[in-house]
Design a protein around this nucleic acid. Sequence first.
DNA 1: CTGGTCATTTTTTTT
DNA 2: AAATGACCAG
Length: 851
Amino acid sequence: MHTSSTTAQETLLEGLTERQREAVRHTDGPLLVLAGPGSGKTTVVTRRIAHLIASGVAPYRILALTFTNKAAAEMRDRIARLLPPDLPGVRGLTVATFHSFCARLLRRYAPLIGLAENYSIYDTGDQREAIKQALKIAGLDSKNWTPASVGSAISNAKNQLLDAKAFAAQANEFYTRSVAKVYTQYEKILRQHDAVDFDDLLLMMAKLIRDHEGVRTELQERFRYLMIDEYQDTNHAQFIIAHSLAAAHRNICVVGDPDQSIYGWRGADIRNIMEFEEHYSEASIVPLGQNFRSTGHIVKTADTLIRKNRQRKHKDLHTELEDGERPTVITCRDEHHEAQLIIEEFRKLREEKDIPWKEMAVLYRVNALSRVMEEAFRNAQIPYVIARGTAFYDRKEIKDALAYLRIITNPNDEVALKRIINTPTRGIGKTTLDRIEIYAIQNQLGLFDAMRQVDQISDLTARAVKAVQNFVSMIESWRAMEARAASSGEAMPTDDAPPHDEMLIPDRREDVADAEGEAFGGRTPFADLVERVVRDSGMEKLYRSAKVEEERERLDNLNELISAAAEFRPAGDAPGGEDPDREGDDRAGSILAAFLESVALVSDSDAIDPANGAVTLMTLHAAKGLEFDAVALAGLEEGLLPHSRSLENPSDIEEERRLCFVGITRARRHLLISHAQMRTQRGFMERTISSAFLDELPADAVNTLDLAGDPYGFSDFGATGGDVEDDRGGWGRTSGGFGSARKKNFPPRSDGGGGARKRDADDPFIDDVPAVEYGSWTPKSPSASTSRPSGGGGGVAGQFPVGCTVRHPKFGIGRVEGLTPRPAGTSARVNFRGLGVKTLILQYAKLERIE
DNA sequence: CTGGTCATTTTTTTT
DNA sequence: AAATGACCAG
């Protein structure tokens, strides 16, 4: 036993430098690891944890905190690989993000602080809604007070651990006093909704530890060894949480690099890492300056740049690798040219150096730059992925579905409720909602409770009452279903029988056939619930019958959500328990709650999947912690990098410089830095000024190349009209974007890039051309997309089948392209000559069928 | 009540 | 350019 762990310990030191070993071997007491880029930080951290375990520390006594789920997952994974697979108790190890750690503990200790266990987590969008409401109540004009600016003021306050009361107490200027008013209202709203925002997770956790000695000692008892990654990015609240946890045993190991602190705007306090030694005078400090990642010229470029920062502790950055290729700075004409040149370069690297696409990345300061890049990569037929992890969960249909799910667990989540109360439309319009709200206020009820008693509300049409009642009982039937699932062993796969239930909509399995497909066999009651929601809510029907392809794709996304639900397993390492061997399955809430929590806390960087063979496009922020053989750093222009918002404050400029430093140090061997002379911003093409950072790069380590006059930028889009070899791009002529013409003109995309097509404004053949002159719909091409068996259209619809020609008193002659039955009456999409498509309600529109 | 059109605005970065 | 908010025909 002892021998085996001794050898295990030795194995863990293999292949490390003396410095690295020092960090790995360290066990007790405070430790600061200053880890420069590419210095083997993750290796050191994971081995250190494995080493602790090998030295006899029980895994459940260790807590490692990161910033992103991806970092946590990777750490967990790498630690697991360092340990014998059968080691007992490994599952007790807690590796989590700050936010998810806090979220779970808050759930556990919710009653102590008067929080509902089933609380919702408000994302930025939800937060915005709540703040809007707060602004209204506080009586502030939303003209001068944008939800965003107030929101960030509130966020700053929360990061400083100032709650509304504390903030108000120290607010003496007009501005802060106003913010204080909104803040107070906002908090009230959150509490009424049983909701917390991201900052609350930290704030409330910090307060919980501070104010409740029992909790504090319990957690200190359990987590004897604390590890914090990316420590330079911690804010004050996180600082307090970490140090309260460590106060008793002082076994705190923090790892970070002040030069990579890029989250100051989010409240990260670089002093946390700079002053670590002042907080822990007995701390050991291990600087890791040797870079194992990048070749010499790249390291020198990065080092030279970062030395320009004044507020900085000097750190020696060096490499023993060969000098390698020099980074190249190129000047381009405009953003299109820039994208072209990057693509040329990547192609060359692939062909000549055999570098795979997945080892290449394009980095930029702002997401807005991704559009042009994306388009260029698509046209060039190079596989690419955009690191937008939230993108999936940002989709309207997904947000809607999640709002439905939220309302199941938390009836007081009114932001969710309002979002979906009439989506898809079910006849609960604004007037109805207003009346319900008034009733709710008069009777001191929550919105949902008010809806439960709609029949008590005067002035509502019978129709509206009925609609509301249906809505309420739909939600309640889901709730019943969820409760049943929760009580009957939820991890069990279901037998195929759908839970029998008071169904509002007959459960037609055939409808679902294609929703199942791949998820076959792995179905869980929870996935069934999600599916039910998608179906009962009417979303399925809505999108299935949509006429636009883009809309119909939303159904695929919803199916993806169902699959995600089927695969979802709550994180096992719920912290806080007393039982060492417990497998951590002690979450307070249901699977549903855990799912919603995990979904609320995903980040962009979580989505980066190294497995796929594609070039990665992402922001500099998202790139932190990653590395690639080849990196292109785009948009090195004043106003962009450094960003215009940072120009006033010298310390903000330093953060921009660090951002640039982070970008440079992502590259292993090839680095291309670009700027364009002209760039389209806010719809206008403007002249740019090259970034001051470019002048700070070492002249002897980089190549500079002015390609603005370069001829081979021809490849642009302007390739007007006639470019014969490009027969796939020709939007225009044949298609004209009407009728059956679908947007399939682009080469197939690897990833759901889908939309964002661009009109070629220069093409004389499209736009403003009356659709009728283009014969595409004269022949009876059974335009696959629009033909629908007009189901349930009812009376009038039969007279105007899809494809027939009609006359409208005002719009003239047109052709019916689609019919959509709605409660309000069937609507028809009619393409009128010279006017384009209009949507008309058949029963009102005075249509006349001709021919 | 719905959905289109028109007018107005834009904090970049993210848990 | 794109996304939200306000307004009116059907």
